[in-house]
């Protein structure tokens, strides 16, 4: 079985999971929650296996490297990280009702990676600039951060829906506002921590590859902007006591910055990171 076969199955797995999570919202039957959670763990397992298989295949081709080097691989890893972080928090807070947004995002990322003609899914050798162990540390940490912000984005949407329509059936499904707010805060802190480590490892890597730990390359700059936005969220919350609605809105704006850092910079701006467009 090849990794690309496994990963295309995984794509449909995430579609199935998002259908389950959405039907949990629509029918509000607790057993659907259990089924959704169980399937999400199964698909995550298959996804992990697919990534490891791709890693092994690259070694069989004699150009072994971690599957984190081009747009296809980073989308696949991004989807993995999103669901891994989501399931980590779902376990911690014991509530499967937030799963619809992350699993849908994971499905979209996988579908885009697998079916868009603009994304090359072949395993390619590493160009000299990417031959560094910092690459692995950098990509993994950044994606953990992005994934947590994605989860926070989902929670924020839910929070806003619940706030605006407190009596709708949908809103009755979610736990009380305090849990939502705390859940959101925890994911933002988690994301900020990993994005910080991601920017720092990227910076150390740039220093060994290009001789400068910061060169204001558009991708670097956009990750700094994202980081500043979330720093503003944390300050507003801890010092100006912003809660709930405002934090949710800022988190959605922050996730917009994440998406721009990831996609917008590759497609609209050029720079050192432009290799990731192929």
């Amino acid at each position: 079985m090849s990794s690309s076969f496994v990963l295309s199955l995984v794509t449909f797995g995430w579609l199935a999971c998002s259908i389950l999570y959405v039907s949990l919202m629509v029918y509000r039957k607790p057993f659907l929650g259990h089924v959704a959670k169980l399937s999400a763990f199964l698909v995550l397992f298959a996804h992990t296996a697919g990534l490891l298989l791709r890693w092994k295949e690259s070694y069989d081709m004699g150009i072994g490297h971690a599957p984190l080097s081009n747009l296809y691989e980073s989308l696949v890893f991004g989807a993995w990280a999103l669901m891994a972080v989501y399931l980590f928090f779902e376990q911690k807070y014991g509530n499967p009702v937030f799963g619809a947004v992350p699993s849908l995002l994971a499905f979209l990322a996988m579908a885009y990676a697998s079916f868009s003609p603009g994304v090359d899914s072949r395993i390619q050798p590493l160009i000299p600039a990417l031959k560094s162990n910092w690459l692995i540390a950098h990509v993994i940490t950044c994606f953990l951060g992005y994934a947590a912000f994605g989860v926070s984005f989902g929670i924020s949407l839910v929070y806003i829906v619940k706030k605006k329509f407190p009596h709708s059936k949908l809103a009755s499904l979610f736990t009380d506002m305090r849990v939502l707010e705390e859940f959101n805060y925890q994911t933002i802190m988690f994301g900020f921590l990993w994005l910080t480590i991601g920017i720092i490892t990227g910076s150390v890597w740039a220093n060994s590859a290009w001789g400068s730990y910061w060169s204001w390359d558009p991708k670097e700059t956009w990750s700094l902007i994202t980081w500043l936005v979330y720093a503003a969220v944390l300050h507003a919350r801890s010092v100006r006591n912003w809660r709930g609605m405002r934090v949710a809105v800022m988190s959605i704006a922050g996730f917009g910055c994440v998406l721009f850092t990831y996609f917008g910079v590759n497609f609209l701006l050029s720079g050192l990171h432009a290799y990731a467009t192929k």
Binding site: W216, P218, T221, W222, L224, I225, L228, V229, A231, A232, H235, A236, V239, R240, V265, L269
Partner: peptide, 21 residues
Amino acid sequence: SLRCAIVLLIVLAISSIIGTV
């Protein structure tokens, strides 16, 4: 003040955006 800090963070973010465009 911390208000100044938040203003600075936002101004730096906006200026950085200009630099990428």
